[in-house]
């Protein structure tokens, strides 16, 4: 099948790739660009492990075609940490043991960041509903929710 040339921006870098139009953005990130931090847990938008920010919006990258990335701006887990240190959520997740196997973690961090970027004072219930599209089978969510709440508190206190 003829491939399509896509020019896009990922984590601040200009990126070009060729894609079969049937491939998802997740396929392209993982197989063409080498960014394997976004995971495929279901491929049908039910688990959130492939969460990315696509032109400012939280998406499941398995439900976006690679060709749709043309001219867009994409943030993945690989771009979440700063040059000098981790994002506060990343740090808090390690400190509070909010991950076990770590497979859902990139998606959950991206989704949690998307939430805190728009609301740094969410209720616990808001956090739980916002993260309902991110399945975690190891932790029972308890420590994840607490880590997000704690990070939000830290962000508010340093703001």
């Amino acid at each position: 099948m003829t491939k399509i040339h896509v020019k896009t921006n990922i984590n601040g870098d200009k990126v070009e790739f060729l894609t079969d139009p049937r491939e998802t953005l997740l396929d392209c990130l993982r197989n063409h660009i080498g960014l394997t931090g976004s995971k495929e847990g279901c491929g049908t938008g039910d688990c959130g492990a492939c969460s990315c920010i696509f032109d400012g919006n939280l998406v499941s990258s398995c439900l976006v075609l690679g060709v749709e990335a043309e001219g867009k701006s994409i943030e993945t887990i690989e771009g979440m940490a700063g040059e000098k240190e981790l994002h506060p959520l990343q740090k808090k997740f390690i400190e509070m043991a909010a991950l076990q196997c770590g497979f859902c973690t990139p998606g959950i961090l991206i989704a949690a960041k998307a939430l805190l970027d728009r609301n740094n004072d969410p209720t616990e219930s808001e956090v739980r509903y916002w993260l309902a599209g991110n399945l975690c089978r190891c932790t029972g969510y308890d420590k994840i929710i607490k880590a997000v709440m704690e990070t939000a508190k830290d962000i508010r206190e340093t703001a």
């Binding site: 993982r30 394997t36 931090g37 981790l86 990343q90 390690i94 991950l99 973690t105």
Partner: peptide
């Protein structure tokens, strides 16, 4: 309760899982 040694790898997307 120290930080886990593989924490950085797992919050940055660097850790290599089966399909990676």
């Amino acid at each position: 309760r120290p930080n886990r040694p593989d924490g950085y790898d797992k919050v940055t997307g660097r850790a290599k899982y089966g399909a990676d």
